[in-house]
Design a protein around this nucleic acid. Sequence first.
DNA 1: CTTCAGGTACGATTCAAGTCGTACCTGAAG
DNA 2: CTTCAGGTACGACTTGAATCGTACCTGAAG
Lengths: 111, 111
Amino acid sequence: MAGKNLVGPEADVLDLGTVFRALADEHRRSVMTELAADRSDSERGCNSFNLPISKQTQTHHFRVLREAGLIDEIDYGNRKGIRLRRADIDKRFPGLLTLLGAESPGGTAPR
Amino acid sequence: MAGKNLVGPEADVLDLGTVFRALADEHRRSVMTELAADRSDSERGCNSFNLPISKQTQTHHFRVLREAGLIDEIDYGNRKGIRLRRADIDKRFPGLLTLLGAESPGGTAPR
DNA sequence: CTTCAGGTACGATTCAAGTCGTACCTGAAG
DNA sequence: CTTCAGGTACGACTTGAATCGTACCTGAAG
């Protein structure tokens, strides 16, 4: 039952360049904006983001986000879970998630 | 003697996507890291950054930074001045410059 | 004036990245 | 078992971005 957690980089080696490159894409940024705005940090399904792109491309984008160290992907075999690595990001890049959360259409949602 | 200030976007319309795309490049990010780490915000020359690229490419990169709203370019005719738009960036994207300054090799890092 | 360094304009090249088509895998539900 | 939806692998296409070569402009100093 327990899905395998596809591994990304450790919190210490997160690279700002890789992160900025990941966040440069509109679709990936919209995913991160949603995740950053949700303070509950609950695990989400891949298609809960309603991305207007094919599923192959979605696979690509989630992989980029994971390899940048921004999300965890939990593999259940025939489906996948997404979870924001909030603690690691806050530790390595404090303020970044606040920056993203402020872009949320639901309005600026600071604490 | 007063150089003309090449115009970039107003502080209100700065786009996070454009900014991330600008900061995704290694050379542009190194420029911004230096600028962010220098609290005096003094005007700097273009070649004070020692970028290992041709001058045509430097022109390109500084233009991207200006169009993203991150720097001002002051045109003196046969030379050019660069100044960080710290106030505007801090207003629109609070925390971003701190994030960049923390990447400085000198380390203006809050630990 | 001429020279020269700093900078720009335009075009060409090269390369990375986003996208999708086809085929295949996985687990759950009939 | 078969079916089906979610996801991946691989390849191909396309677009955008980084880079530089050549030519030209600008202002300061001889």
